[in-house]
Design a protein around this nucleic acid. Structure first.
Length: 508
RNA sequence: GGUCUGUUCAUCUAAGGGUUAGGAUUCAAGAUUUUCAUUCUUGCCAUAGGGGUUCGAAUCCCCUACAGACUACCA
């Protein structure tokens, strides 16, 4: 058993864009597989045609690719267990349902949705919950309650479903790799539908059959699946597959940053952060949802953040490359309780990756951004600019906010700073400063700074006044890199031009 | 309602019977940067409550509270 090759699957249904909770599930599966030298498969669970959303499957593939989660076997990449799309495996499932029917672990049921609703409503009006199980199945329309001739006739003439015959009052105990032993009593469980009247299996049947057929060794999925674990275990037993049954692990949920409940799309809209890896445009409503990629997050930063949400290495290391994650990962170190999502920490992670990038890398990312604004600057100069301001940024887009004045003169002056710095004596001083700068030959930051400082001192001016006013002229506000660096970048004539421009613009 | 799972600073978490309960994010203060940001230092802040077991409990057990998931011919 312990020799078995690790094979895990990520099995989303293509009903919309992949949520970050789903990405994390995929990531943990991937890390676990790679840690043990195993395979990571993608299987599309599209057994519900009514919920099929065009583009969702492509989105899932693209999102995983962006994250650096590579798929060993899947619908696009193929593999020895193809097809990997359940709708394409449709023909298979009926045989397995019939196997259960023949061995007495399942039965035909003919209750219409209306009849089931009615049963639920009657129970509810009595303050009870209707459960299709050993106690009630005798009163329903199925192959256990009806005479054989009657139900056989119905099987051929009407729609039917196949239900699992849940044993009465049996304790089912199974080990969850992060929670330990979990026990359920079957008397509280219902006779789940395994095969729908439209000819498709339900999730329960399809996932067990496929996991078995695809030789899956570990099922790692969200906590919302924990209640259906006993059903799945019982299915493995019914099929006689218990000796190769995968080990189960249920991951804790990702919760809203504030308030209660699990993270939803709404929270992102409300609090202003993405809940999807990639931008998503709903083809029906035309509505778009932000994505981490488009918001300027780096995939490795995004993955790093996600990995630490619910898992920790037991050391104080926080920055991990994918390879380091693979090396350090273990299911035992995944927490049991839900983790509240923190958009602030996500930004912090991005900042860590941001400042680690070389000036040239950032420059290359900024270039197209500048081109959009009609600015075509020298790549060397752009790289230098990135180096000057990257400490103050979390995203590429913020480089522009911190450096636009290096590409063009300020178009406005921050009013607060003007009233604070632009005193009556300042214009006269600035005129003298401009005149002095005119005399400087060597236009480099250090060679400007030295004579400049001497000049200001000799005049007896307050250094802070001069510097802050000069910054206002060149930048339009009170921020940005070293003032002499700015002078060097924009050049001598531009520096003097901006001083004069500011004097006339601020002359009241 | 029922079943299952969970509960350590505001947030992510460490400490798998013995530490002044540690780190990170956020926030606040100070230093540096004659700007802003960075950086550095410091500070604030937690074992849900109650019972046991034990020489000793965040850790083991029970009860309560709270939270979440599930309870479809959806996954």
């Amino acid at each position: 058993m312990s020799e078995r090759k690790v094979r895990v699957r990520f099995a989303p249904s293509p009903t919309g864009p992949l949520h970050i909770g789903g990405v994390r599930t995929a990531l943990f599966n991937y890390l676990f597989a790679k840690k043990h030298g195993g395979d990571f498969l993608l299987r599309i669970e599209d057994t519900d045609q009514t919920r099929y959303v065009p583009g969702a499957e492509d989105y899932i593939q693209e999102a995983l690719a962006w994250c650096g989660i590579s798929i060993d076997e899947g619908p696009k990449q193929g593999g020895p267990f193809a097809p990997y799309r359940q709708s394409e495996r449709k023909a298979l499932y009926l045989n397995y349902a019939e196997q259960l029917l023949q061995s007495g672990y399942a039965y035909y049921a003919f209750d219409t949705p209306e009849e089931l609703d009615e049963a639920r409503n009657t129970a509810e009006s009595k303050g009870e919950t209707f459960t299709y199980n050993a106690l009630s199945r005798g009163q329903m329309k199925n192959s256990l309650s009806l005479p054989e001739s009657a139900w056989k006739e119905m099987v051929s003439s009407t729609h039917y479903v196949v239900r699992f015959k849940m044993p009465d009052n049996l304790d089912v105990t199974e080990i969850d790799l992060i929670r330990g032993s979990v026990t359920f009593n079957t008397s509280l469980l219902d006779d789940k539908v395994l095969f729908k009247s439209d000819g498709m299996p339900t999730y329960h049947l399809a996932n067990v059959v496929d996991d078995h057929l695809m030789d899956i060794s570990h099922v790692i999925r969200g906590e919302e699946w924990l209640p259906s674990m006993p059903l799945h275990v019982l299915l493995y037993r019914a099929f006689g597959w218990e000796d190769t049954m995968p080990r189960f692990t249920h991951l804790p949920l990702i919760l809203k940053p504030t308030g209660k409940g699990k993270l939803s799309k709404r929270d992102g809209d409300k609090l202003g952060f993405p809940v999807f890896p990639l931008l998503w445009r709903d083809s029906e409503t035309g509505e778009t949802s932000r994505g981490y990629r488009e918001d300027g997050y780096f995939p490795d930063s995004f993955i790093n953040m996600l990995a630490l949400l619910g898992w920790n290495p037991g050391t104080e290391q926080e920055i991990f490359s994918m390879d380091e994650l693979i090396h350090a990962f273990s299911l035992e170190r995944v927490g049991k309780s839900g983790a509240r999502f923190d958009p602030e920490k996500t930004k912090w992670f991005n900042h860590q990756y941001f400042v680690k990038k070389s000036d040239e890398e950032l420059g290359a990312l900024l270039l197209p951004f500048l081109a959009d604004k009609g600015i075509h600057a020298n790549p060397d100069m752009v790289a230098k600019v990135c180096g000057m301001v990257k400490e103050r940024c979390n995203f590429v887009s913020e480089i522009w906010d911190q450096s636009y004045f290096l590409f063009a003169p300020p178009t406005s002056y921050d009013e607060k700073i003007v009233s604070k710095r632009w005193k009556d004596d300042v214009p006269a001083i600035m005129i003298e400063i401009a005149g002095f700068l005119e005399t400087i030959e060597q236009w480099k930051a250090p060679t400007i700074k030295e004579p400049f400082s001497a000049f200001v001192t000799s005049k007896g001016w307050n250094f802070g006044t001069v510097m802050n006013s000069l910054r206002l002229c060149l930048v339009g506000g009170s921020f940005g890199p070293d003032i002499f660096e700015i002078c060097e970048i924009i050049g001598k004539s531009e520096t003097i031009f901006r001083i004069k421009k500011a004097i006339s613009a601020l002359n009241k």
